[in-house]
Amino acid sequence: MDVETLRTFVVVAETGQFQAAADELWISQQAVSKRIATLERNLEVTLLVRTTRGSRPTLDGQVFLPHAKNVLTALDHAEQAVRPGSRPLRVDVLHRRIAPAQAVYRFYRSCPEMDLDVVTLSEENADQAAQAVLGGSVDASFRALPASQVPAGVSAERLLDVPLELLVGPGHPMADAAWVRSADLAGHRIWIPGIRPGSEWDAFYRALSGALGLNIDALGPHFGDEALMDALADTDSLATLVGSGDRYLWPGNHDLRRIPLREPTPVYPHVLLSRSGDQHPRLAALRDHLLTTRPRTPDDTWTPDWMAH
């Protein structure tokens, strides 16, 4: 069934005049008559009858009219949903506690009229997230993706470098340090539960362990961030790593300490992935916000040499 034919029937039924419908639709009265005849022939019913005062729907026309309106309304909504700039900017932030989510939130706070849809493709690795961007299920994703694995059609720009910090309980030997040399962590157990084999996090921390000689493990079940904070508070031998822009909360009596790492400062580089060319109009505003608000990173940073730039 032709949409314009359906629209023509609705306009004739509402105006009560073939000529009025022709004027509104910017077509000839003959074209209106042909469209109505075609629709009635396809439905095998008479929808309109002409009178001395114009045209009015038949009983079948009255039954058909609300359904025709609903179809046209649904089509209008569908077109509006995909019109450039009309639908929300859809961004994958991997985890809602970490720096990319906080950066997107600050972006939203700077322009609350911006329509955003923040998602977490938590089961996807970096390659799969890039494919989600390429396929259009998300407009952008923050990931640590090797340059060699960025697929054709996807742009990768390093816009959010996050220095890592040591997080320890009050009894840890380094709890009172103003800052810690990364090399001094050798021999200390750094527990980061929940690292999935084959994930970008797994690749990053393997590279970090090898480069700086750190003892990083993900042994044991991961009962969530709150359980990790409890474990840190209850022991003097356990530490973990968090991003300086990550947002973690714990009870005040835990007295956990965030300690900067230096010489070198391990940096997790969040790369903004987006489709090349066909981009959401609001993505440029997000990119500009990240460029103008990102904090200055230390000069002595470390990142894996395979990270996209």
Rank of each mutant, 00 (worst) to 15 (best):
V3K: 14
T5Q: 10
R7L: 09
A13G: 04
Q17M: 08
Q19Y: 10
Q19S: 10
E24D: 10
Q30L: 15
I36L: 02
I36E: 00
T38R: 12
L43H: 07
E44H: 15
V45C: 08
L48M: 05
V49L: 08
R50P: 04
R53P: 06
R56D: 05
T58I: 02
L59T: 11
G61A: 10
L65T: 04
H67M: 14
A68H: 08
V71D: 15
V71Y: 13
T73D: 11
H77I: 02
E79H: 07
E79I: 06
R83S: 03
G85F: 02
R87I: 14
P88Y: 04
D92V: 00
H95M: 05
I98Q: 13
S122R: 11
D127V: 11
A129D: 14
A129P: 12
A132G: 07
D139R: 08
Q149L: 13
P151W: 12
P151K: 12
E157D: 14
R158C: 09
R158Q: 09
L159P: 05
D161I: 06
P163L: 10
D184T: 10
I192Y: 00
I192P: 03
P193D: 00
G194W: 05
G194F: 05
R196H: 00
Y205V: 04
G210C: 03
L214Y: 02
N215P: 03
A218E: 11
L219E: 09
F223L: 12
L228F: 00
A233G: 03
D234R: 01
L238Y: 01
L241W: 03
V242K: 04
L249M: 14
N253S: 08
L261C: 01
P266A: 11
Y268K: 03
G277H: 02
G277M: 02
D278P: 02
R282E: 13
D288K: 14
T293E: 12
T297N: 14
D300Q: 07
T301E: 13
T301I: 15
W306N: 05
